[in-house]
Amino acid sequence: MPAANVPLPEKIHCKRAYDDLSAGDGYRVLVDGMWPRGVSKDALKLDDWQKALAPSTELRRWFGHDPQRWAGFYQKFFNELEQSADATAAIDALLRACNGRTLTLVYAAKDEQHNNAVALKRYLDA
Rank of each mutant, 00 (worst) to 15 (best):
V31Y: 01
F77H: 13
D66V: 12
S56A: 11
A85W: 02
K41H: 08
Q83H: 03
A85G: 00
G100R: 05
D48E: 11
V106D: 01
T102H: 13
G72N: 12
W49S: 06
Y18N: 00
A54K: 06
H13T: 07
R16L: 01
Q50E: 07
S84E: 07
A54T: 06
A71H: 12
Q68D: 15
F77R: 04
W35M: 09
D19C: 13
N116Y: 03
Y74V: 06
L120T: 01
E10P: 10
W35L: 07
L30V: 01
G33Q: 12
A54P: 02
A71T: 07
G64H: 12
N5E: 14
V29L: 01
C98D: 08
Q113K: 15
K51V: 09
N79K: 09
T104N: 09
L94K: 12
C14M: 05
A89Q: 13
G33L: 11
S22C: 10
N116D: 07
D19Y: 03
R60L: 15
L103V: 07
A54H: 02
A90Q: 11
P2W: 14
D25N: 01
Y123A: 06
E80D: 11
S84N: 06
P55D: 02
I91Y: 10
D92P: 14
G24I: 08
A117F: 00
V106G: 00
D66W: 10
V6Y: 08
L120S: 01
A17N: 04
G64D: 11
G38V: 08
P67K: 03
F63W: 03
S56I: 09
D32F: 00
Y123L: 09
V31H: 04
P2C: 06
K121W: 03
T102V: 15
P67L: 04
L53Q: 02
N79P: 07
V6A: 12
N99W: 05
A90N: 10
A52D: 14
M34R: 07
V106K: 00
E112D: 08
N115V: 08
K41L: 05
P9C: 02
Y18Q: 00
A89P: 13
Q113S: 15
R61G: 05
A97V: 08
L53R: 05
E80I: 08
R61D: 11
L81E: 04
G26H: 10
E80W: 08
A4M: 09
Y123R: 08
L120E: 02
W35D: 09
A43P: 15
L30P: 00
K110N: 11
V6G: 08
W35C: 05
P55E: 02
G24Y: 04
V118Q: 07
H13C: 06
C14P: 04
G38Q: 05
A43Y: 13
F77T: 04
T104A: 06
L8Q: 14
T102M: 09
Q50S: 10
T102E: 09
W35T: 08
Y123W: 14
A43G: 15
R60A: 15
A108P: 03
G24F: 02
Y74N: 09
L105C: 00
P67S: 11
F78C: 14
L105G: 02
